[in-house]
């Protein structure tokens, strides 16, 4: 039950893009077409879950016991960068078709603040789900939370890419063209997602 709350909360109520503003740059950058948006969402899902798992273990068994938690920022970004490189190499060898699909998006993910943001949030913040007591996440919860968060990012991206494809066909006033109208559209989308608040 607890896991269900985590999943609903991470996808709809506290959507990482529409409520927490993480990962805006790639969101604007690759949401021009539905196909690129889907590819990017899959890559984020993959890396975010893996990165949270690795950084959670690193924090718990290496940084905290030795009192090195002030190095969190440096350690996490290095781990994520190395992880992305490794995933790229392994995928190329093991599953060329998946590599073809995700390939160009993987390097972009290193500087996607959503990945680092979730990794830091999971080890520093207290979470409350479904009216329960606020607590630090354990390993299982952290992995489920990061995966659900990535799904929420994917959902927002695919929804928005669909809207943006239609937007391209419309006659938009000159000063609104491109990014400004995109932001106004995201604003309205975020307004719609606010309707989910209070569910869990």
């Amino acid at each position: 039950m607890e896991y269900l709350f985590i999943i609903i909360s991470a996808i709809f109520v506290n959507n990482i893009m529409l409520a927490q503003f993480l990962g805006t740059c790639p969101f604007i950058g690759v949401s021009n077409k539905l196909s690129t948006a889907t590819g990017m969402s899959m890559a984020v899902c993959f890396v975010m879950t893996l990165a949270t798992l690795v950084t959670y273990l690193l924090n718990k068994y290496l940084l905290l016991p030795f009192g090195l938690d002030f190095l969190q920022t440096i350690a996490f970004i290095l781990v994520i960068a190395a992880l992305v490189q490794m995933v790229e190499i392994v995928l190329k060898k093991v599953s060329p078709s998946l590599y073809q699909a995700l390939g160009i998006y993987l390097p972009l993910i290193t500087t996607n603040c959503a990945v680092l943001g979730v990794a830091i949030n999971v080890v520093t913040k207290q979470f409350t789900f479904g009216g329960g007591p606020s607590h630090m996440l354990n390993l299982g919860e952290a992995v489920v939370y990061s995966f659900a968060t990535a799904l929420g990012y994917g959902l927002a991206m695919v929804l928005f890419a669909g809207l943006r494809e239609h937007l391209a066909l419309n006659d938009v006033p000159k000063d609104f063209r491109g990014v400004p109208i995109a932001f106004i559209t995201i604003g309205i989308l975020a307004l719609a997602f606010m309707g989910f608040s209070g569910i869990v």
Binding site: L18, A19, Q20, F21, D175, F176, V179, P180, I181, A182, F183, I184, I186, G187, I188, A190, L191, F193, M194
Partner: peptide
């Protein structure tokens, strides 16, 4: 209140960009 929350951020930035462009 919506302007302090998430939707307002996107809307305000969008409209400020329009003004900047103009």
């Amino acid at each position: 209140l919506a302007f302090v929350m998430a939707p307002g951020a996107f809307l305000c930035l969008g409209y400020l960009m329009v003004l900047f462009n103009k």
